[in-house]
Computed example of a mutant assay.
Amino acid sequence: MDSETAGKARHAAYVAEQSSARAATQAMASPLVKAIPPAVLALMQQDHDADVLEKQLAACAVQAERLGNARYFENRPPTRQECAEVVEKDRCGKPVTRAMQLGKQKHVLALQCAEAVLKELWPAPFSIEQRYRYYPNARFLETISREKEARLIAEGCTEELRGTLKPDIVLHGDRDLLKSALTLDFKFPCPDTNLPNWTQYGPGSPYEGMSQKTLYQEALGGQALLISPRYGIREVKP
Rank of each mutant, 00 (worst) to 15 (best):
S228I: 09
W198Y: 07
I153D: 08
S180R: 06
L32N: 07
R175V: 14
D174A: 12
T183F: 03
M28K: 11
Y207M: 09
D185F: 03
L171E: 10
L182K: 01
H11W: 06
L177M: 13
A50F: 02
A70K: 09
R98E: 09
A27R: 12
Q130M: 04
L177Y: 13
A29D: 11
Q63P: 13
E74V: 12
Y132A: 04
R91S: 14
E4M: 05
R131V: 08
P203L: 00
Q217M: 15
K187N: 10
H11D: 11
P203I: 08
A58E: 11
L102Y: 05
A99P: 08
T193A: 08
V15N: 12
I128K: 04
L118R: 08
E149F: 13
P95Y: 09
V236W: 00
T97Q: 04
A29R: 08
D49G: 15
E218L: 06
G68V: 03
E4F: 07
G156V: 06
V236S: 03
I36H: 00
Y231F: 15
R71W: 01
K8W: 01
P189E: 02
Y134V: 04
E159P: 03
E88S: 15
A6L: 13
N75Q: 13
E149R: 14
V40C: 05
S205Y: 05
R10C: 11
M44Y: 03
Q200P: 02
K179G: 08
T79G: 07
A219V: 06
E208R: 08
Q18M: 11
P37S: 06
R234T: 12
